[in-house]
Amino acid sequence: MIFTDILTNGLLAAIAGVGFGAISFPPKRAFRHIAILAATGYAIRFSLMNYLSWDIALASFCAALSIGVLSLWFGKLSHCPMTVLYIPALLPMIPGMYAYRTVFALVMFMQNLHTAEVAEIHLQTLLSNAIVTVSTVFLLAVGATIPIFVFPRRAYSMTRRKGW
């Protein structure tokens, strides 16, 4: 049961990664790597959050870090820069529900300005959801980028081929 859960989530994330990637026109050879990265990353985050009950920001950071490390290897295989592979793979992990609740709370806060108690509750929701959204997105970006800084020479010669 646990295994199928992880598998379906990974599969859905792979579809989402490929679809969101398609908006930015990646080279065709990159698609399967994007799918694998997106599935692995999401599966890691899903497991950390559901079975080890980590919080979303930390779990996202670890998942992004694994995507970054894997893309060091995949980039060399497909001769694509790392960012081409990992940016689409990170997109399925964007905390959409938190972002939505932030906007909804903002709307409700403005609608209830004159009833202080209600407005206060909405303000609280607004603040906590905004904090979760911003820190998760930031950690996603940083986590996947760390491998570039650790292995700069490898990361910068992904598109170089041997014996042209």
Binding site: F25, P26, P27, A30, H79, V84
Partner: peptide, 11 residues
């Protein structure tokens, strides 16, 4: 935005 340009032009 085009990842294809990114990859091919770097190459």
């Amino acid at each position: 935005i085009s990842f294809a340009y990114n990859a091919e032009l770097s190459s």
